[in-house]
């Protein structure tokens, strides 16, 4: 991972050195998790009972246990089995950051799938019927009618999930990953001041502020029907004369 400041002069620079990891963890798990969550939400709405049940169990497990348990299960737990230690994945699962990304991804997939499911179910059935009547295929119906509206509906909830994930990356500090929280905690232990923790808190607040603003901007862009007209269009007789 890149180091922003080789010789940090201030606490701010020191904590900023953890920023790349925090952002990497949040961005990668959110990105992979979103794709998986769309799939999982569709499985949750599958007509086949065993499929629905399996998806429900996954969501239930990851939403009912603390993220810390999930992280420890993957980082410490998997190494218990020889089969895992001998497998091709071991060089990855041995590393704290891959474990953190894996745990965060699996976790956010469960939460996000519920948000997307809510969005999918909010699309009125009449629209699906109308799309069918127009002769759209299943795939086109999903792409053009259901999905865009579901996303718009799910966006506010997803904004909360982004904030939660940014906060959750701090748990990676428990498995020795040097992101902002661990740097701040080490510095606090070394200097006996809690200033580093406050600085880290400010960084998280700033990230979350920007993230929520970003989501609000997308929301604004995606819902033109809810916007107030910025300027009134000129009435026909007020239109400038054609040149």
């Amino acid at each position: 991972m890149i180091t922003l400041f080789d010789k940090p002069d201030t606490v701010w620079e020191l904590i900023a050195n953890g920023l790349p990891w925090t952002l990497t963890l949040a961005a990668s798990s959110l990105a992979i998790g979103f794709v998986l969550a769309v799939g999982l939400a569709l499985l949750r709405l599958s007509p086949l009972k065993p499929v629905r049940w399996a998806a429900w169990t996954y969501v239930y497990f990851f939403r009912s246990t603390p993220l810390l348990v999930q992280i420890f299960l993957i980082y410490y737990g998997l190494g218990q089995f020889e089969a895992v230690r001998d497998s091709f994945a071991w060089p990855l699962l041995r590393e704290a950051h891959w474990c953190a990304i894996l745990a965060l991804t699996l976790n956010t997939t469960a939460y996000t799938s519920e948000i997307i499911r809510g969005g999918l179910q909010s699309v009125p059935w009449g629209q699906v019927e109308a799309a069918k009547a127009c002769g759209m295929s299943v795939l086109m119906r999903f792409r053009r009618v259901i999905f865009p509206q579901a996303i718009r509906q799910a966006l506010p909830g997803y904004g909360n999930e982004i904030v939660l994930m940014v906060k959750s990356t701090s748990l990676a500090s428990t498995i020795t990953l040097l992101e902002m929280t661990l740097i701040a905690r080490k510095e606090t232990s070394a200097t006996f001041t809690i200033e580093p923790l406050f600085v880290a808190a400010m960084f998280y607040l700033a990230i979350n502020f920007l993230a929520t603003r970003g989501v609000m901007a997308i929301e604004y862009k995606l819902s033109p029907e809810l916007r107030d007209a910025k300027r009134l269009l000129p009435l026909p007789d007020q239109q400038p004369a054609a040149r």
């Binding site: 701090s170 929280t181 809690i194 923790l197 998280y204 607040l205």
Partner: peptide
């Protein structure tokens, strides 16, 4: 509410653990 909900719980816990006594 904005501070608590925007800062990781772990940081809040550390701040109280290390700074609460002071």
């Amino acid at each position: 509410t904005t501070l608590i909900r925007g800062v990781p719980d772990l940081i809040t816990i550390y701040i109280i653990f290390f700074g609460g006594g002071q």
